[in-house]
Amino acid sequence: MKKIVAKNIKKSFDDLEVLKGIDLEVGEGEVVAIIGPSGGGKSTLLRCLNKLETIDGGRIVIEGETLAETTPDGEVQYSPDASRIACKMGMVFQQFNLFPHMTVLQNLMEAPVRVQHRPAGDVRREALALLRKVGLEDKQDQYPRRLSGGQQQRVAIARALCNKPDIMLFDEPTSSLDPELTGEVLKTMRNLAEDHMTMVVVTHEMGFAREVATRVLFMCDGVVQEQGTPEEVFGHPKNERLRSFLQSILK
């Protein structure tokens, strides 16, 4: 079963059509990188998948459960269970969005304990194991503002994972980091991919897309212009927009 099936997704902000009928399928264990120029709709697509934005048309199915679909009369209808379905996806934001008034460990434990009602002792153990995995077990009692950007983002990844999602969405996770800090975050994401987590990553890190992604989508002007393996997209780009995009990045 596909983890994500999105068909003909449409989204406008006022008069601006940001997504003009996007199709996206993600299989289990796939790492899909979405690349493209700013304003091309990449982040909006990601945010539509977990209902941070509502769609104007199309259909989204997560692990066989319909999150939203267009009814025959043209209205988009969300499942009454939409929140639960959307929570199968963990999300990592460009700005980290850690809770500043909670320690690192409290950030990780909040939702599993209060929302999922898992026993606090178990959650604590799992949270500490996750912090070890992202290399921050010594920071468990720190407040987020005391951490570097790279550390904050790794905490954010651990927090999303602590909720036990089946899919991870990354919205430009390294874009607000200093160059020397992106490496540690990308390494964490690489480890996650090696553990066969299903991932959709909006990124400007072409190196990461090339090495880690199983598939690369090039989005521009609200349309998927081209997609394929990293080898196809980066090695033999067919689309004219993609070629000029890659050229401008390599300069």
Binding site: S83, F93, N97
Partner: peptide, 24 residues
Amino acid sequence: GQYEAAKTLGMNYLQTMRRIILPQ
């Protein structure tokens, strides 16, 4: 972003307000 983070973690309106927004 604080509301969005809470939402993606599954928190409802009341939980978000009480635990995340009001303390700040």
